[in-house]
Each structure stands twice: as C-alpha cells, then as structure tokens.
C-alpha cells in the first residue's frame, strides 16, 4: 500500500503535556514514549505528518489525552 500525501498534522503542546502516556496506549504505532514517559512523535519533533490511513489512530490519541495537549491540524494551514 502506498501512503497518500499527509493531509493532517498531529501537534503536541509540550507545555501542557503531563506525560502519563495515554496517547501512546491509544495509538502505539504513532506515539512512542521516551525514557521519562513523555510522548515521542514520528520524526522526533512536536509535529508529525499523519498519512490518511492513520488518521483514525491519530484521532484516538487526541481523544485519549486528558490534558488536551494533542490536536490535529490540516497541513495546508501551515504551508508558508
């Protein structure tokens, strides 16, 4: 299967994240945890491209976060 171009970006706000890792439980393929229990997104930064077929998982991660530290935004919005 070929990945479609990313339409959504998973964005983490590190100042609100409290590191309990519910996001990684909800979407283990998309979010890993570092040795201190804080989320590691694909690519290592605070924004990760989400291919269309993984959008449902990304939504699960967003909804699992009790701190509202994750959200999805459309890739177009951030093109400069």
């Amino acid at each position: 299967m070929t990945a479609r171009p990313a339409t959504q970006i998973l964005v983490l706000n590190p100042t609100t994240c409290d590191g309990r890792g519910l996001c990684a439980e909800a979407a283990p393929g998309l979010v890993d945890l570092d040795e201190w229990g804080f989320p590691l997104l694909t690519g290592g930064g605070l924004r990760a491209d989400i291919p269309g077929e993984r959008l449902a998982e990304a939504r699960d991660a967003v909804h699992a976060c009790p701190a509202l530290a994750l959200h999805l935004e459309s890739a177009a919005r951030h093109r400069r």
Binding site: P14, T15, C17, G19, D34, E35, W36, G37, F38
Partner: peptide, 12 residues
C-alpha cells in the same frame, strides 16, 4: 519545568 524533555531530560 513545563515540558518533560526539559524538566526530566536536562537533569539526566
């Protein structure tokens, strides 16, 4: 002390 990778990572 707001972000995990800073608050825990820097002491490590």
């Amino acid at each position: 002390g707001q972000c995990g990778p800073c608050a825990f990572g820097l002491p490590s």
